[in-house]
């Protein structure tokens, strides 16, 4: 049950994000056939099982993803997007699915330092890439002013698209720590907030930039 003492929730949100990061499986606990649930001892055995028992089905593939600095070895269906793998295999819910066609930015993560739309990237193509999600940003003291200002300025309403906006903002600030108002709107121009908070993000980010420039972080 969620119990919220007013004003105390940055800490608890950070703790929940840290817990989600800690719970990311580094390798599958049990390898099971996704079709018949038979348990296999290795990926190789699973592949053999597929060839023998499900020859007409698409076999799962093995991939190692570097997510938030951790290498996670996964066995996934080849068609899964990065967004789906983050949720279904790694338990990270921060990248959200809204349009599922690269037209809304809600699923934004940072890949090799650049913003990337995780709904539009196959996870099986991400081996060797460094992937960063909102959960990581949530636990980094450096970025707390950004999250804090978003919350202070209500740069969110229902909150569903918000992590995507924050990742786009973080990617911008990584590259350009003191952006102009126009540069901010440009960097966020691939994100759609259905609640219509579009005009509110610049102010939150500019306030955060000024706090971050002073080296301020929030102790949570």
């Amino acid at each position: 049950m969620e119990t919220t003492r007013a004003g105390a929730s940055l800490k608890s949100a950070g703790e929940q994000a840290a817990a989600a990061l800690a719970a990311m499986p580094r390798r599958p606990e049990v390898i099971r056939c996704p079709i018949c649930k038979r348990q296999c001892l290795s990926f190789e055995e699973l592949s053999e099982h597929y060839a023998a028992e499900h020859p007409d089905s698409v076999a799962p593939t093995a991939v190692t993803l570097n997510v938030n600095g951790l290498n996670c070895s996964l066995i996934i269906e080849p068609h899964l997007t990065l967004k789906q793998v983050l949720q279904l295999h790694l338990g990270l819910t921060g990248a959200k699915e809204m349009c599922d066609r690269g037209a809304c930015g809600s699923c934004t993560v940072i890949m090799d330092g650049n913003p990337a739309l995780s709904c539009n990237i196959l996870a099986s193509e991400c081996e060797g890439r460094s992937i960063e999600t909102i959960e990581m940003v949530a636990v980094m003291p450096k970025w707390r002013p950004l999250i804090d200002e978003y919350c202070k300025w209500d740069a969110m309403q229902c909150g569903y698209c918000t992590p995507g906006y924050l990742m786009a903002a973080k990617a911008l600030l990584d590259r350009n720590p003191s952006p102009t108002e126009y540069e901010i709107r440009e960097a966020l121009s691939g994100n759609i907030c259905i609640c219509g908070t579009q005009p509110r993000h610049s102010q939150a980010i500019l306030e955060a930039v000024s706090r971050m420039a002073k080296g301020e972080t929030i102790n949570a």
Binding site: A13, A17, A138, I147, G159, T162
Partner: peptide
């Protein structure tokens, strides 16, 4: 709940 929303949890 803004922090929970912003942080994706």
């Amino acid at each position: 709940t803004s922090y929970a929303m912003a942080t994706g949890v």
